[in-house]
Design a protein around this nucleic acid. Sequence first.
DNA 1: TTGTAGGCGTTATCAT
DNA 2: ATGATAACGCCTACAA
Lengths: 322, 322
Amino acid sequence: MVDIASAAGVSPKTVSRVVNDEQGVHPVTARRVREAIDLLGYRRNGLASSLAGARSSAAIGLVIEDVSNPFYGAMARAIEETCRQHGRILITASSDERPELEQGLVQTLLERRVDGLILVPAARDHTYLRAEIERGTPVVFVDRPPTGIVADTILCDDRGGARIAANYLIGLGHHRIAIVAHGPSVYTADERVQGALEAFEAADLRVDPGLIRVGAYTSEDAERVVALLLDMDNPPTAIFATNNRMAIGAVRALHARGRALDMAAFDEFELADLLPVQLAIVGHDPRALGRGAVDLLFRRLNGDARPPQRVVLPTGLIPSAR
Amino acid sequence: MVDIASAAGVSPKTVSRVVNDEQGVHPVTARRVREAIDLLGYRRNGLASSLAGARSSAAIGLVIEDVSNPFYGAMARAIEETCRQHGRILITASSDERPELEQGLVQTLLERRVDGLILVPAARDHTYLRAEIERGTPVVFVDRPPTGIVADTILCDDRGGARIAANYLIGLGHHRIAIVAHGPSVYTADERVQGALEAFEAADLRVDPGLIRVGAYTSEDAERVVALLLDMDNPPTAIFATNNRMAIGAVRALHARGRALDMAAFDEFELADLLPVQLAIVGHDPRALGRGAVDLLFRRLNGDARPPQRVVLPTGLIPSAR
DNA sequence: TTGTAGGCGTTATCAT
DNA sequence: ATGATAACGCCTACAA
């Protein structure tokens, strides 16, 4: 920048003004500066800029479970684009659902002085963030609420969606509905199980505890779980899967055994409608979650000081296509 | 940092040493410093650190077509993890296959002084990167080679994979094989079409130009294209799709019309084996591409000065599961 | 083992 | 409209 300044015969501050499109620079001077910039191949140093009082690092940090999960991939994409509209780049990291990793990643992001943080929490305790939030760093939780602190959060209506899904299966005449849930101790899983149980209860269905299987993580886990369910003496006649991985595992297990139970599942996923089962989907838009999170974040960055918000997006049933 | 220093009764430099785990600090002093850090809630400023000559911004930039595409999502995930092993965070941006956007994103990343750049190129001309590369910023191209410059590149064997796919369909006895390709003027598409045509020629198949449809982008595009193919007077008896979106669109079109042509397609995608068509997949591992790209990048960062490398990963056919 | 000096590239503030 | 000066928070290089 000093080089440019002397090449253009001005002070560094004037170069700074030109580079940042500040007003109050004579057009002729500005052009001279720009020519020098092109000539010398100068490129502004964003790090120095952030350091020197630009009071923004122009970056947002995102910690999600796994970018390669299409659900989170779509969310990440929406967040990235919305951040770009706000002049921010996105630093993304996958926590793989591991609490220590989440905390380490957050630490790294804060060291880089991101302007804000968007988290799909994996940790079971977020008190470690309290100090940072009080210091003024906006933090938004997506898809699951934080534990141990109160902070801006955007969720979808897990419980309501699960009720709808369960009612759908009940409406088809099923009495023995298995629940294949991820988790345990993952908010979305717990809520969705609760929602289904509420629906069962409201319909006076007796619940067989053996039909409730919580704790699979991968679709392979779910496949094994469903295989076991199908082998029961008194197997279920329908399945509610709490997320896309559970659903895929269940479909695989059914397919492997040539069975075709009715199913309902959370999370839209590509090709769900072409699968060889009756599968109703509880849809919720990951992009809407992402955009909502960014909105919350930038409200804070723009000075909004209301108490922490909790936004709940609706879910809706997409009936089986078959 | 100055505050910590005075609180601990040492100089800032000693705090710096402690924070960076440098050797040569008396354990007692170190503990005193750490206590002050905990007490005052100090957090190192990574931006300042990078500025001050740490000769690394500890960040890598990634520009891909679309994180929400599972193929690129898996690649991004592998890149992120491998970068983390090298102590770097990842700044990810989606170019949406738009050249101007790619260039803008690259510009932004360079302003942030990323240590290196990994690109799935969308632009048709990468001469704009030449100066930066000569200046010493390592740039690696993934999935598609650059145009107009020579640089480290990692690809998969598009042409070979396409030949294998085409031969598979030919081996099933097909003479009228449609090619549903993305693009046009996307390297992978062109190569895959060429590979298939080579196989046709080697098998003395007469090629009907009407069966070669290049230029769809979304799976919806592909669905329409295949619908048109099926409506031909003399429709194809098999389909080769050049990527996952093309494959999905084709499957949808077949399904909508109750047809079941044999298919071969590039890109593994979840549930492909459960679809109601004979579908052989040309598999290539996006994670391997990602890891390979990071390897190339860090070789350069570690001083490797060989001429630009071109790595080609093999592809293999996964026959239809049905 | 610890400290001092100087500077990284930019911007805020206050002058001119 | 433009410039001088002093940070920003840290690190390298050298000294003690």
